[in-house]
């Protein structure tokens, strides 16, 4: 590079990463979006009741007595937190995060209570499938609220000492982020309809969701624990945490794959065994969700295995870091 006189120009380029704490503060846009997502999740179904005639009733937080007041309290606390965050970022976000976390825990506790209530009902077992529990399940809103509140909470937690030492701001691990995709997909679809026994024409129809299968309560618990472990692996970037999460993923995926294969195989066998004269009212339909869950669980199995390879766990994704590019052009003195 030369100047107008043909003399070489010394370009002094310095990459100055800002050490000022204000530069490292989290931006407010993402926390606001996560808070809105968590609140929106509470307006989606939290509990789904399926009747044997194929009808479905869905309930959210607003259907509970005093639910509107609960949601308003959380929304007001979140707004107060976000307002404080404009002046004092971490403090404000902590207030908002605590409010949203309480909503997330309400969703989680409602799911747990649902499991307990379901277990108290007398069971009607057909080929290992509890048809009573098939009638009550979690809605999609629970997953959205919990994941959003967790994400917001982790944004705060990773700034705290000494967690920040294990959670570099410049990059995050790729494997946990990829592993969370099939895991959350399974978590959502565990409450979807996997198989339908009977036809819509007849009044009797049993809808079998993933959470009605034998031992599914424990599986859902381990599944959420695994989600937490992978999120922890995003924060604490140590291979030991990824290995823990990977091991849990392998266990979860093996059980879920077994569920999907057995349900698909059992459904096929049942459809083959049903006499042709009752086919009109006793059909067996395996929904596409079963195949989706099966595919997700196989992907999770592979990703769990990859967590033991240092070359894979070492892969990092660069995220926005404040870099100041300064160029000083020095022209020679004449």
């Amino acid at each position: 590079m030369t100047d107008v006189f043909g003399m070489p120009v010394r370009a002094n380029v310095s990459f100055d990463t800002d050490q000022d704490s204000s530069e490292h503060e989290p931006r407010i846009f993402l926390p606001i979006v996560l808070a809105i997502m968590a609140i929106r999740g509470s307006l989606l179904p939290w509990v789904t009741v399926r009747e044997f005639n194929g009808e479905k009733h869905e309930y959210n937080l607003l259907d509970v007595k005093g639910g509107t007041s609960i949601l308003m309290t959380i929304a007001v606390l979140s707004v107060i937190g976000m307002t404080i965050a404009i002046f004092k970022r971490i403090t404000g976000l902590t207030v908002a995060s605590l409010a949203i976390a309480s909503l997330g825990w309400m969703a989680a506790i409602s799911g747990a209570l649902l499991g307990i209530l379901g277990s108290l009902l007398p069971s009607i077992n057909v080929a290992g499938i509890d048809l009573t529990r098939a009638s009550v399940g979690q809605g999609s809103g629970v997953t959205i609220t919990i994941v959003s509140s967790f994400a917001l909470a982790f944004m705060i937690v990773r700034r705290l000492t000494p967690v920040d030492k294990y959670s570099p701001r410049a990059h995050i691990s790729v494997l946990p982020l990829v592993a969370l995709i099939p895991l959350i997909l399974i978590a959502i679809n565990m409450h979807s309809e996997w198989m339908v026994l009977g036809s819509a024409e007849s009044n009797y129809q049993a809808i079998i969701a993933g959470d009605s299968l034998y031992g599914s309560g424990l599986l859902v618990l381990v599944l959420w624990l695994n989600v937490g472990l992978w999120i922890a692996a995003v924060i604490v970037q140590r291979s030991i945490v990824a290995k823990f999460a990977g091991t849990a993923s392998i266990l979860v995926s093996l059980v879920v794959t077994m569920y999907a294969v057995f349900l698909w195989g059992g459904g096929k066998a049942l459809a083959w065994l049903i006499p042709s004269n009752v086919e009109k009212w006793a059909t067996v339909t395996v929904n596409p969700v079963t195949f989706l869950v099966g595919f997700a669980s196989i992907s999770l199995l592979v990703l769990g295995g990859l967590s033991f390879l240092p070359s894979v766990t070492g892969r990092r994704l660069g995220i926005g870091n404040a870099v100041k590019l300064e160029t000083h052009v020095c022209t020679p003195q004449i």
């Binding site: 976390a101 989680a108 982790f154 937690v157 000492t161 937490g228 472990l229």
Partner: peptide, 23 residues
């Protein structure tokens, strides 16, 4: 630090407990 453990436990619940043990 007390502040860290309090916030981790309050925000993350059982997961916070696990995170505290790991850290």
């Amino acid at each position: 630090p007390l502040k860290t453990t309090c916030l981790v436990g309050a925000l993350l619940g059982p997961l916070g407990f696990m995170l505290t043990v790991i850290i």
